[in-house]
């Protein structure tokens, strides 16, 4: 049962040929085997949302999936948000609105928001707060995170 299997994960468009046990969670594989440590494991039981990534465009908790389930799928993590040196609008907005302090939950919030705004650039305020309630932050009190995401949404609306 501890036999490792070969599989290829595609993280931010980059293919990683890895060898893991079936029980290896997606978050651990992304971090340990693909070397992308921007995705954080905050609770490993699916509540805090720090490990949120985009799987084929949908935000999911990467601690609640096994790497072996994700072969051939499009995995997007915080490392893939920026375009070279140009920050993603959400990244810049988080800086501008002081939407992070310790920064541990930040990648999860960024990926959650990126997934949401991609599908719903016009999402309403109430719904947005409800969606952002899926992730926990212990530093900011959330108001600045909400503002940062709203600002990007409003920018999209104008564009």
């Amino acid at each position: 049962m501890n036999e490792k299997v070969d599989l290829t994960l595609t993280v931010n468009g980059q293919r990683h040929a890895i060898r893991v046990e079936p029980r290896k969670t997606l978050v651990d594989a992304i971090r340990d085997d693909c070397g992308q440590t921007g995705t954080h494991a905050g609770c490993e039981h699916g509540v805090c949302g720090a490990c949120t990534i985009l799987l084929d465009g949908e935000p999911v908790r990467s601690c609640l999936m096994f790497a072996i389930q994700c072969e051939g799928r499009d995995i997007r993590t915080v490392e893939g948000l920026a375009n070279g040196n140009e920050l993603h609008p959400l990244q810049q907005s988080f800086i501008d609105h002081h939407a992070l302090q310790c920064g541990f939950c930040t990648p999860g919030f960024l990926m959650l928001a990126a997934g949401v705004l991609r599908k719903r650039p016009d999402i309403g305020d109430e719904e947005l707060i409800d969606l952002l309630s899926s992730n926990l932050c212990r530093c900011t009190g959330y108001a600045n995170i909400i503002k940062a995401v709203k600002a990007v949404r409003d920018g999209l609306a104008q564009a």
């Binding site: 699916g46 949302g49 949120t52 949908e58 935000p59 999911v60 908790r61 609640l64 999936m65 959650l112 949401v116 409800d130 969606l131 309630s133 899926s134």
Partner: peptide, 11 residues
């Protein structure tokens, strides 16, 4: 819409 949170509902 009352079940857990969006990233849970997608799975």
């Amino acid at each position: 819409s009352h079940i857990a949170h969006y990233p849970i509902r997608t799975r």
